[in-house]
């Protein structure tokens, strides 16, 4: 359940940004979560509501944008889509893939007042 500490990190960032960006309430949080990051979206939502309770983001809406996993196959010389870290290249079957997208866990945007 590291989603709990991830949500605590999100709250830290929201609170820190409140001063810098001059807001007192967060109503929506957009996250960009890669399919290959070790984040379970349902667990994230569950923890988000619990952690934000009583904070500047109390009852804020959580929007998770999932980014597909992508890797470079050096045999095919192109990017291929993957769903898991252990996926082989869907074209040639090789597993020496270099992951280049889908690992991110980022706060993208906020709707604030």
């Amino acid at each position: 359940m590291h989603e709990m500490s991830l949500c605590e990190s999100i709250l830290d960032i929201l609170e820190q940004q409140a001063g810098e960006q001059n807001y007192h309430k967060v109503s929506t949080v957009w996250l960009e979560i890669g399919a290959l990051s070790s984040v379970e979206s349902d667990a994230m939502r569950f923890c988000f509501d619990a952690v934000m309770q009583g904070s500047i983001a109390d009852k804020a809406r959580l929007e998770i944008v999932t980014v597909q996993g992508q890797a470079w196959c050096s045999l095919c010389n192109k990017n291929v889509m993957i769903e898991q870290r252990y996926d082989t290249c869907p074209v040639c079957g090789d597993f020496h893939l270099q992951i280049n997208d889908g690992e991110q866990m980022r706060i993208k945007e906020l709707e604030v007042e």
């Binding site: 991830l6 960032i13 940004q17 109503s27 980022r106 993208k108 945007e109 709707e111 604030v112 007042e113």
Partner: peptide
Amino acid sequence: HAHAPGLSQARMVQIEQDILSKN
């Protein structure tokens, strides 16, 4: 950019920050 009518002070803030940036 507001999603609910009547929230006149609502605005969008782009953060682009890694959740684990502090760690």
